[in-house]
Structures are given as structure tokens and as C-alpha cells.
């Protein structure tokens, strides 16, 4: 059982919960167009396998990411404990402007919660990450997580801290109308 990365993606792109989701083999991907600041933004989302054995493959997908969603399972503390190693990977393999969003998934299982919101929030604050708790099953906050990531990236472009169209930063701008085309935040996560 994973932390729910593929389910989050499925919920975001199809607005459906995928029960019996198999382990991701290697890497998969999905797209969706959202609006931010009156502009259409196409998100290209790479869903990487969480299992350690795929790491040799998945780490190649940090390159070119404008944002990364790092997911743990609030009902399993060990997934939370792995965060720092995933964060190290993310920091080493992405560019410094990559927006990293911490996601605590499975809020629908509140009764089995092992990681408190406050604790994770503190971890996120200490490491300069955005943070949100979601439920891929109920769909709660899933939209927000992705859209907020995209907004943050968009904001970075407007502020000038991300230069679109440069190699490997994952953001491209439509030349004539200042439309940042797809930032592709790959999701990556702590495996179980």
C-alpha cells in the first residue's frame, strides 16, 4: 500500500478515486489545464514510483520539474520519517527555484492518524516547504494542492525568480501573451 500519489493524481485529473490502485511501475504521467491569474496553465504531472527499487529510474524525472509534491501518509509514521531523505533527493536533483509542496495524504482516515498536522507543519516551515493535508479518497484539498503549487510557480515567474524557457526548469512561456505553459511538477514521495 502506497501513500497515494497515483490516487492523488487520478483524483486531480479524473476527479475520481481509484480504489485498488496498483503499485506504480517506474513512472507514469497525466496532464490537466487549470486557470491561475486569468491565465490557462497546462500542468504536466509525472507520477513516480515510490518503491525504492525504482529509484534509479525515478530520479531522472526531477530534472526539468518546476514543482514537486512530496507525499506521506498521515496514518503511517514511517512514511513521514522518510521525508528528509526524499527532501534531500529533491533538493539535490532539482533547480533551486523548484516549488516543493509537502502533502499529508489520507485525511479520511482521521481515526488512524499517526502524524499530527502541527508536527508536519513545523517540519514544512523549517524546510521552507508549502504544506497541506489532503484525501485522495474524498477529494478533499486535492485540487488545492495542485493548484496552489501551480500558483506558486506562476507567482515565481511574475516575481522574476523563475525565468521561463530556460532549459530544465520546467516552465515555458507562450511568447506573445505571457502565458506560462506547462510547469511539470513531478510528484515524488516516501514509499511505504
Amino acid at each position: 500500500m502506497g501513500v497515494g500519489k497515483s490516487c492523488l493524481l487520478h483524483q486531480f485529473t479524473e476527479r475520481k478515486f481509484m480504489s485498488d490502485c496498483p503499485h506504480t511501475i517506474g513512472v507514469e504521467f497525466g496532464t490537466r489545464i487549470i486557470e491561475a491569474g486569468n491565465q490557462k496553465i497546462k500542468l504536466q504531472i509525472w507520477d513516480t514510483a515510490g518503491q525504492e527499487r525504482f529509484r534509479a529510474v525515478t530520479r531522472s524525472y526531477y530534472r526539468g520539474a518546476a514543482g514537486a509534491l512530496m507525499v506521506y501518509d498521515i496514518t503511517r509514521r514511517n512514511t513521514y520519517n522518510h521525508l528528509s531523505s526524499w527532501l534531500t533527493d529533491a533538493r539535490n536533483l532539482t533547480n533551486p527555484n523548484t516549488v516543493i509542496f509537502l502533502i499529508g495524504n489520507k485525511t479520511d482516515l482521521e481515526a488512524q492518524r499517526e502524524v499530527t498536522y502541527e508536527e508536519a507543519k513545523q517540519f514544512a516551515d523549517e524546510n521552507g516547504l508549502l504544506f497541506m493535508e489532503t484525501s485522495a479518497k474524498s477529494g478533499e484539498k486535492v485540487e488545492d494542492a495542485f493548484v496552489d503549487t501551480a500558483r506558486k510557480i506562476h507567482q515565481n515567474i511574475l516575481d522574476g525568480s523563475i525565468e521561463p524557457n530556460m532549459a530544465d526548469n520546467g516552465v515555458t512561456e507562450k511568447r506573445d501573451t505571457l502565458r506560462p505553459a506547462p510547469p511539470n511538477p513531478p510528484k515524488e514521495s516516501c514509499s511505504c
Binding site: Y62, G64, N95, P96, A167, D168
Partner: peptide, 19 residues
Amino acid sequence: RSFIDSLTLGGPGGNPKPI
């Protein structure tokens, strides 16, 4: 072109490193 960039330049400021 962008492949060559990824191979030799990498991301902004060389981060991520060139392939």
C-alpha cells in the same frame, strides 16, 4: 537543442547538473 542544453548546461545556474 533542448537535449543538448540538458546535456551540457543543466538547469538555471547549472542546477540540476547537466546530464
